[in-house]
């Protein structure tokens, strides 16, 4: 990497005889931290992957939040006379088997996806963070027990777990949420556990312990701030998984139930009439792809900038 003259000048701490050397050092450190932050922001703003991701994610949020104002029709308004029409001036991407406007239904379907993603990701992040820190910091037997539990949950392929549960309870939105949360907790917990383990023997944690700090204080004041960063990046990468699980379960009729519009139910209804019109399965799939692509791009760009080593693993 080439270094030009002016950068070298900034890097050298200015010697000021009136101040203590520690203060000068602290200033330099603060300055270099600020410079690093600016550099990271610049890296993000200039990466096409990160910006594409950010734009797609913002479009997803905006279209879901403002769906009632953006949608040209009521998503459940039935118009049998115009059923299964292709794209027309009145219905931009056609209508479904009941003559409902597909574009409006897709906008409303985004609301379901956003709701599941927001609740599912935040709850599993918090629970995973706490369990992971307990596993990493607590006694060995507790760690082993928790690891066994994580492995057991992971041993159920998501759809299989969903099928087993739906067989007993019947389909519902709450069930989709519960499955999403249970299956993603181990992901966050594992990352939090590894990070906590590496911190456990760090000097500042040992110092805190020798000063008599309580375990919750150590975990929440000292360990958590160092662990939460990678988890937030993981959360961005998990959104596509959550959205896909919701769409997949709803597609199978195990999640959101008709007549509620969800990308999965639109795909399901489209699949049933696939020989009559291709528009519903095309239209139902595109927002799903754009959303997963957006969050994947965003998560990868953030990961490359903040934590290049996390890239391996999965």
């Amino acid at each position: 990497m080439s270094v030009n003259r002016s950068e070298l000048d900034v890097g050298q701490p200015a010697v000021d005889s009136s101040r203590l050397p520690e203060e000068a050092l602290e200033d330099t450190m603060r300055e270099s931290a600020a410079r690093e932050r600016r550099e990271k922001l610049r890296m993000f703003l200039t990466s096409w992957q990160g910006m594409t991701g950010l734009i797609l994610v913002l479009v997803f949020f905006a279209s879901a939040i403002f769906a009632p104002w953006l949608a040209p029709y009521d998503p459940n308004a039935i118009d049998i006379a115009n059923r299964l029409s292709g794209p027309t001036a009145a219905h931009w991407i056609g209508t479904d088997q009941l003559g409902r406007d597909t574009f409006s239904r897709i906008l409303y379907g985004g609301r379901v996806a956003l709701k599941i993603a927001a609740i599912g990701v935040s709850v599993s992040l918090v629970v995973g963070l706490i369990l992971g820190m307990i596993a990493g910091y607590g006694p060995r037997w507790l760690d082993n027990l928790l690891l066994l539990l994580f492995d057991t949950v992971r041993a159920f392929p998501t759809i299989i777990l969903a099928l087993a549960t739906v067989a007993l309870t019947g389909p519902s939105l709450e069930l989709v949420l519960a499955i999403v949360i249970i299956t993603s907790i181990p992901q966050y917990a594992r990352v939090a556990r590894t990070a906590t383990l590496s911190l456990k023997a760090a000097d500042f944690i040992l110092a805190e312990r020798s000063l008599g700090a309580s375990t919750p204080r150590i975990l929440f004041h000292h360990v958590m701030p160092n662990v939460v960063g990678p988890l937030l990046i993981l959360a961005a990468m998990e959104v596509p998984v959550v959205v896909t699980v919701e769409a997949g379960l709803s597609f199978l009729g195990l999640g959101v139930l008709p007549p509620t519009a969800s990308w999965g139910t639109i795909l399901n209804e489209g699949y049933l009439v696939i020989r009559d019109t291709p528009w519903m399965v095309i239209a139902g799939g595109i927002p799903l792809i754009l959303t997963t692509l957006g969050f994947t791009f965003l998560g990868e760009a953030l990961r490359d900038i903040f934590d290049p080593r996390m890239g391996r693993g999965r």
Binding site: P240, T244, A247
Partner: peptide
């Protein structure tokens, strides 16, 4: 990024 069930459909 493309969900496999969508690829199937």
């Amino acid at each position: 990024a493309v969900p496999s069930f969508l690829v199937s459909i």
